[in-house]
Design a protein around this nucleic acid. Structure first.
Length: 205
DNA sequence: GGATCGATCGGCT
DNA sequence: GCCGATCGATCCG
């Protein structure tokens, strides 16, 4: 399978996000290959995006977002969970695609051990779940996902036609009306492995 | 099915 | 000192 080169990630973040759907995220962990099809993602674009970690400018945590495309941005949240992003756009512009859900393909038993659950629907449907299943933590922050010897990378697999791509507001975003409602969440329509977390209503009456 | 809440801690406005 | 791009348990209906 072909891996994506850096120029794939250097593009407009919305295109990268949409095009990542259907592709396969691969993680080599202790000599074992774990993988899953990407079925749900979100785009975080620039310092003007008030839902982005870059909204307050460059800091220690978000530094990877300002770095070269095709690298991982992994952060810890709520003191106990990790989330994986892939950095996009040319170096210097802070943007990334959050990987929100996978359909597990390879290494299910290992994922079950790591997650402590058996149901495949609970293995990698959720940004923190997939990180736990695949052993992704801050040690992989800034890892180059385009390097020949990468232990975390994306393989080109199955393009998803426009009819099967759905969009919507990003999950878990609070505050600013624009940030809450802009349709920068992309997912495969009716795919069983998309996370179903209910989102707080962004409605104003 | 939906709503609510606690866990747990690094980074920061 | 406060808060979070989450998850899982628990309670209610």
């Amino acid at each position: 399978m072909t891996r994506f080169f850096r120029d794939f990630f250097a593009r407009n973040t919305l295109y990268v996000a949409r095009d990542l759907l259907g592709q396969v995220l691969v993680r080599w962990l202790d000599g074992e290959r774990l993988s899953g099809r990407i079925v749900e993602v979100e785009a975080y674009i620039g310092e003007d995006d008030l839902a982005s970690h870059a909204r307050f400018g460059r800091t220690g945590r978000n530094e990877a977002m300002y770095g070269p495309p095709g690298h991982a941005y992994v952060y810890q949240i709520y003191g106990l969970h990790h989330c994986l992003n892939i950095v996009t756009e040319p170096e210097g512009f802070p943007a990334a695609v959050l990987i929100r859900a996978l359909e597990p393909l390879e290494g299910l038993e290992r994922m079950r051990e790591r997650r402590g659950v058996v149901d495949p629907l609970l293995l990698t449907s959720g940004p923190a779940r997939l990180c736990q299943a695949m052993g992704i933590d801050r040690r992989l922050d800034k890892a180059d996902m385009c390097a020949p010897d990468a232990v975390l990378f994306v393989e080109a697999d199955m393009p998803i036609p426009d009819e099967q791509v759905a969009t919507g507001p990003r999950v878990g975003v609070q505050g600013d009306q624009q940030a809450r409602t802009v349709p920068w969440r992309f997912y495969i329509r009716d795919h069983p492995y998309v996370s179903r977390r209910p989102r707080p209503t962004g409605d104003v009456r």
